[in-house]
Structure formats: structure tokens, C-alpha cells
């Protein structure tokens, strides 16, 4: 066999992104097993990972993790390029854009819960637009807006709290072990 002339050396950052994306994909697949009363209302547990990555490693990595999760998650669930895939992709892109803005809100006042709720609203907003324009070209889709909005608040708060708790415990763990032992290879930590 000819030796490949192309050698890809994953950087520390690549490994970190892959690890976080893997966690997000696991949550996506696990969530798909939960029976839900209404199509489109999902807890979006994978977004917890996005929120944690956003707070710890910045927006660029959150984008990588979130989009990798959408692509790999849909491949695993057999949804790739199906309507559901485009709905999650549009939702993910919109939430990432909103998160990019929301992360600059004063940290003293706005925490992961705010980020989570705002992202959830961006998510349903983009999905509704895609659904209205492409999948259900009728204003009837808007009949479900109040339900989606309620779900966005509820799951936004829950996901935000879980992300906040994880961040808190990661910070405690880091403080206890001096420098982050578990993530010792990640030397370049963005200043907070």
C-alpha cells in the first residue's frame, strides 16, 4: 500500500472539539429515544454541551461542536438530508448566531440560562421560518407557536441550569487540581 502523502495531525483543539461533539451526539441519539407528544418539541439536551463549550472555549468551538453534532447526529439517526435535518441545521445556525451576540451580554447579569433561552427562541424561530417557507406553506404552522415558545422557555431554563451547574463544577474541579488536570492538554484557555 502506498503511504499517504497527506498527513493530518489533529491539534489539541481538534481533539477537544471531537470530544465535546461526541458528547453532544450521544445526547442527540439518547434524546431521539424519548417519546414526545408533539413533533418539533424536543428538550435539545445536546445544546447543554454547546453552552458549556461556548462559555469555556469560545464561539468558534461552539460552532464546530454544534454543527458536527447536527451532521453526525442526523447520519446516525438516518435523518441526513431529510426535512428534519434541515430544520435542525437552520435552528442550530440561528442559535449559534444569537449565542454569538448573547455571549457579549454582561456576565454579571446574564448567565447560561439567558444564553440557553435566547438560543432556544432563535432555534424555533428559524425552524418556523423554514417550515413555513418550505415544508408547510400555510400559516397553520404558526398555530403551534405558543406551544413552541413555552417549550423554549421550559427547556431553555432546564438546559441553561444544567450547563451552569456543569460549568460551576468544572471550575471547582479546576481550582482543586491546580490547573485543569483532565484537560491538561488544553493549555490555551481564552481569557474570561
Amino acid at each position: 500500500m502506498t503511504r499517504s502523502t497527506i498527513e493530518l495531525t489533529p491539534t489539541v483543539e481538534d481533539r477537544r472539539i471531537a470530544r465535546h461533539a461526541a458528547a453532544a451526539i450521544v445526547l442527540t441519539v439518547a434524546e431521539a429515544a424519548i417519546p414526545l407528544p408533539l413533533p418539533g418539541v424536543k428538550p435539545g439536551l445536546a445544546n447543554i454541551v454547546t453552552l458549556v463549550v461556548l462559555a469555556r472555549w469560545g464561539w468558534r468551538e461552539a460552532v464546530w461542536v454544534s454543527l458536527l453534532r447536527v451532521f453526525a447526529g442526523s447520519l446516525l439517526l438516518g435523518q441526513f438530508l431529510a426535512p428534519g435535518f434541515f430544520l435542525s441545521l437552520s435552528g442550530a445556525i440561528a442559535s449559534l448566531l444569537v449565542l454569538g451576540l448573547a455571549m457579549h451580554l454582561p456576565k454579571r447579569w446574564f448567565g447560561p440560562v439567558s444564553h440557553s433561552i435566547l438560543a432556544a427562541f432563535a432555534h424555533i424561530g428559524a425552524q418556523l421560518v423554514v417550515a413555513r417557507v418550505w415544508l408547510v406553506p400555510h400559516d397553520g404552522v404558526f398555530y403551534l407557536v405558543p406551544v413552541f415558545a413555552a417549550a423554549a422557555v421550559l427547556f431553555g431554563v432546564v438546559n441553561g441550569l444544567v450547563a451552569g451547574r456543569l460549568l460551576q463544577e468544572l471550575a471547582i474541579e479546576e481550582a482543586a487540581t491546580g490547573s485543569a488536570e483532565r484537560e491538561s492538554e488544553c493549555v490555551v484557555k481564552p481569557p474570561n
Binding site: F110, V113, L118, V157, Q168
Partner: peptide, 11 residues
């Protein structure tokens, strides 16, 4: 304690 004042506002 994880909920900051602005979070309540957003909720």
C-alpha cells in the same frame, strides 16, 4: 444561585 438577575428578566 445559577440564575443571575438578567436571567430572570429573560425568563
Amino acid at each position: 444561585a445559577l440564575l443571575r438577575p438578567g436571567d430572570w428578566l429573560v425568563i
